[in-house]
């Protein structure tokens, strides 16, 4: 019989450290996935996951048994990822260059078919998408990933980032605008 998360948490707090291993195994991959989507880097995502479970272990006495363990740890993962993004930004001594001038005409490709044009376009799209992600602030990037990729509600994002729902909405809005501006030169007007 598989134990539910709450019984495992109780066991851990009662001194059974190995019970925590079951929780780590159970939720590790989900946390890796969200960490990867936020950081877009495998080593960074691994670091976030390890730190998440280390922090969660220490904070376990503060876990409210009425809440969902997965939601709780997800929130810790999001915060660890946020800290890592901030750290990475601080480390980048040279600011990310304005590699993609938004005014640049871009590649005017008429269709999205196969062939060499398609490859070129894909490369250009990915470059511009990545540049837009780098231009977002950490909060914007997190809100964007949680809303757009993870499908979280504005309220959930606000709770995870400890900001107001309106600020969460604004962060998503600014992120989308950055993405739009970065990619706009590539779309052929119909």
């Amino acid at each position: 019989m598989t134990k539910d998360d709450h019984s495992l948490v109780r066991q851990v707090l009662a001194g059974d450290k190995d019970a925590y291993g079951v929780l780590v195994s159970r939720h590790g991959e989900t946390m890796f996935r969200v960490a990867f989507r936020i950081t877009e880097s495998e080593p960074d995502a691994e670091e976030v996951v390890q730190e998440t479970f280390l922090r969660a272990y220490r904070s376990l006495p503060a876990f409210d048994a009425r809440s969902d363990f997965r939601t709780w740890i997800y929130r810790i993962a999001v915060n660890c990822a946020l800290q890592l993004l901030n750290r990475r930004k601080a480390e980048a001594a040279v600011p990310i260059a304005e590699e993609y001038d938004e005014e640049r005409p871009g590649l005017q490709l008429v269709h999205r078919g196969a062939g060499p044009d398609r490859l070129l376009l894909d490369k250009e799209i990915e470059h511009r998408r990545h540049a837009a992600m780098e231009k977002m602030t950490s909060d914007e990037r997190l809100a964007f990933v949680l809303r757009h990729i993870e499908g979280r509600s504005t309220d959930e994002i606000a709770a995870a980032l400890d900001i107001t729902p309106n600020n969460a909405k604004q962060a998503v809005f600014r992120a989308v605008q950055k993405m739009r501006r970065s990619l706009a030169p590539l779309w052929v007007k119909s």
């Binding site: 780590v24 195994s25 590790g28 890796f32 996951v49 479970f53």
Partner: peptide
Amino acid sequence: YGDRLWQSIQAPLTPY
């Protein structure tokens, strides 16, 4: 993956 993750972090954790 989950087991490896646990092995990578479990050593320094002190039981409650």
